[in-house]
Amino acid sequence: MPGHVIHTEHLFKQYETAAGISPVLKGINLTVARGEFVAIMGPSGSGKSTFMNILGCLDTATSGHYYVNGQDVTVLDRNQLAHLRNKFIGFVFQGYNLLPRLSARDNVSLPLVYSGASVPEMRTRAQELLEKMGLGQFSDFLPNQMSGGQQQRVAIARALVNQPSLILADEPTGNLDTATSYEIMDILTKLNESDSITIVLVTHEPDIASYAKRLVRFVDGQIVYDGAPPPRKAREAA
């Protein structure tokens, strides 16, 4: 599907447990065009996180098809998936997922380690992005020397370091206070608007979802709503 960053067809996912087969995703059809900013909401157990993991090529669907930039990922091997994660997808996690023993700069340049960049190139690129995130003077800090908001900004810098076309953010503000959450969301909005990076975001909070341009609601492994996000009013009230 040219022009579509994400396109899924009848995506099913089920887990086999001792209690029997439990379906998690029941035929998801979703298309996300380049430059969209989509928020996925839904109660716990609705399958939104599983869906995100499949979108991020960290997990595979039981059946159905998933296309990234028109490429069917169900036919790719492990190395090709690694390449896809490295070059086209940036992850932002709830728990930041930084390597505790590496400095902010080394954390940001981690994806470059696997794309064969030279060491000086890694340093400049990481420094550039940390500065863009307003963390220029923190590049030698370890993650535990920084605040949660700063760590999440390091994680965003890491997600951006290989200039991906898609950013997957799994509850990026889940561990942050309201003010810091808005800062992070402002950064993501700016990336979406000025760098036209496609963003898919999972969240529980309506005011966070209101930053997106499109809302997809999951219930019991199915999409029950696909349309406009909640109005900004919710956010201003908070």
Binding site: R78, R85, K87, N97, L110, Y114
Partner: peptide, 16 residues
Amino acid sequence: TREIGIRIAVGARALD
């Protein structure tokens, strides 16, 4: 294990 997971998520191949 978690470190390995992070490395895989940002694009490390099995060989790496």
